[in-house]
Write a protein that binds this DNA or RNA. Structure first.
Length: 202
DNA sequence: TGCCAGGCCCTCTTTAGGGCCTT
């Protein structure tokens, strides 16, 4: 008891803003139970438009690969089942939550899941990291990686390892048996100077 | 037509500006 389940997810997209027409082109998600990855979900998605050469270069996902991919709505239905009502985590969650909510909106679904941001939490837990990009934190904490970056499942797995690492570090640094999701969310909203206070207090 | 993100966080702040993160 006490070890919560969460889904860590990551999107590759055509750009930065769903409000300006950008769509998702790949999703990766992993289920974390008892601080271990216990299930995985990944799919490319055909956004119905050409992606820029910048995105092709950035992700390694090509227009050719997407032409054979399933429609976004179809994948969103499957993603909806995968995430169920589990709390969600993403690195810079404001980005992924915007896209998730936009794509769910297109299938007339409204997200009920809570969201936590591993980037905001890492700024509190690892203030001395050179920066808080996912890639940097993976190196900084010597986390498991297959060396692939900017692909959805690889990034989701690295984010999951970061998430697990942060929970384990809080447990050992503050002698805690468990670190509930709500505390992680609270951390993200806590001023850096008040972090010690929060973790010692609760 | 052409424009175009958005939210957090720090500081030489709050009557603001700019860097960080995500694609």
């Amino acid at each position: 008891m006490g070890n919560f389940t969460a889904v860590i997810l990551d999107f590759e997209t055509t750009g930065l803003s769903p409000n300006y027409g950008d769509r998702t082109i790949e999703v990766g998600a992993v289920l974390v139970t008892n601080n271990r990855i216990t299930d995985r979900f990944q799919s490319l998605m055909n956004p119905g438009m050409k992606i820029s050469s910048f995105i092709e270069d950035y992700t390694g996902i090509t227009n050719r690969m997407l032409s054979d991919a399933p429609a976004i709505n179809e994948v969103m239905q499957k993603l909806k089942s995968f995430i169920a009502r589990h709390p969600l985590v993403a690195h810079n969650a404001s980005f992924d939550s915007r896209f998730l909510d936009a794509e769910f909106g297109r299938i007339n679904h409204r997200r009920v899941n809570e969201f936590a941001c591993s980037m905001l939490i890492s700024r509190r837990i690892y203030p001395d990291a050179p920066n808080h990009r996912l890639e940097t934190l993976v190196r900084y904490k010597s986390l498991k990686t297959d060396g692939i970056h900017h692909r959805a499942l690889a990034d989701a797995e690295m984010t999951a390892h970061l998430w697990i690492s942060m929970i384990n570090d809080i447990k050992s640094d503050y002698c805690r048996n468990e670190v509930p999701f709500g505390l992680m969310q609270q951390l993200a909203k806590t001023k850096r100077k008040k972090v010690q206070e929060l973790l010692l207090d609760t």
